[in-house]
Design a binder for these strands. Structure first.
Length: 287
DNA sequence: AAGAGGCCCTGATAGC
DNA sequence: TGCTATCAGGGCCTCT
């Protein structure tokens, strides 16, 4: 669900509110996430000072002043909510993701600061919180991940080499975090539409020009989505309580049977499944 | 080793 | 109204 742009919005919002602050107390109300939160977790975070909040791919990272980290993933349904102390008992909080109010069910982690608290909610429990002891351990966690689309090494040479002899559709590669990290189902669909590439085509069949377009549109669409505050396909709110706006720009995602939006293209958007993920494309202009 | 497929989980919605 | 089936922004694991 949250892809790179949405996680970036959460990161920016969170950074403004909790950087340089000391964690007073951590309360776990439900330890069952993708990885069970160990009993010592609360103790490890207590009294840590958050030097910086950063992001890699779809991962949020709390960088503590003593060199340790907390790695957070939102999975499909993870949301982060902020509650100010004055309103501790009111649901007038602003939400970073997905809900205008704090949900009553499925709250898992509560991180308390002097003046506010941060609550993590995750109905489907595909997300996680992991304590990381040091930089090496953090780097190891990311070892298997490919570059973000923004990185310099996500270039033509990389794609051409990676796609050599690959008998798998390009859509699956855009979703494969080992190849490129940060792209999810929405943006994979949109990138292929903008590139005029059929999602079912084998990666090895792509031309040099196709690869150039994929690189260029991956960067531009993610940048644009961040600029627009992410995509709100449910109730996404940033820290100011504002929705993202990028969903208004979707050209194919969730547009099954609607007219292709490319100038003068007579096509209609089709929906198929690739590796169990819904895939939207125009079968006229996406060759 | 690449590629296909299943699985983790709850909730919203569509269809009967 | 109320049931069931399907699908949802992700990623890991196993099998061939």
């Amino acid at each position: 669900m949250p892809e790179l742009p949405e996680v970036e919005i959460v990161k920016q919002s969170l950074a403004k509110k909790i950087q340089q602050k000391k964690i007073k107390r951590v309360i776990i109300t439900n330890r069952n996430l993708r990885f069970k939160i160990p009993p010592k977790f609360e103790e490890l975070l207590q009294n840590k000072i958050i030097k910086k909040v950063t992001r890699f791919s779809k991962y949020l990272i709390l960088n503590f002043s003593d060199g340790s980290f907390c790695l957070i993933h939102l999975g499909m349904s993870g949301t982060i909510h902020l509650i100010y102390k004055d309103n501790f008992n009111k649901f007038t909080n602003t939400s970073f993701y997905n809900s205008p109010t704090l949900p009553k069910k499925h709250n898992h982690v509560e991180i308390q600061f002097k003046d506010l608290k941060v609550i993590y909610n995750d109905p489907r429990r595909f997300g996680f919180f992991i304590f990381i002891n040091n930089k090496n351990e953090l780097i190891n966690r990311f070892n298997h991940l490919g570059p973000e689309p923004f990185f310099k090494n996500f270039d033509l040479k990389y794609l051409l080499k990676y796609f050599l002899n690959k008998k798998k559709d390009i859509k699956s590669f855009l979703l494969d975090q080992k190849f490129v990290s940060g792209i999810g189902n929405i943006y994979a669909n949109e990138i292929l539409f903008l590139s005029k590439i059929n999602p079912t085509i084998y990666a090895m069949k792509l031309t040099k020009n196709d690869c150039k377009k994929i690189i260029s549109f991956s960067k531009s669409i993610l940048k644009k989505a961040i600029k627009k505050g992410g995509s709100s396909i449910r109730d996404f709110k940033n820290t100011s309580g504002q929705s993202g706006n990028f969903q208004k720009e979707f050209k194919v995602y969730q547009r099954e049977n609607l007219n292709c939006l490319r100038n003068k293209c007579p096509g209609k958007i089709k929906k198929i499944f690739i590796s169990n993920r819904s895939t939207f494309f125009c079968n006229i202009c996406q060759k």
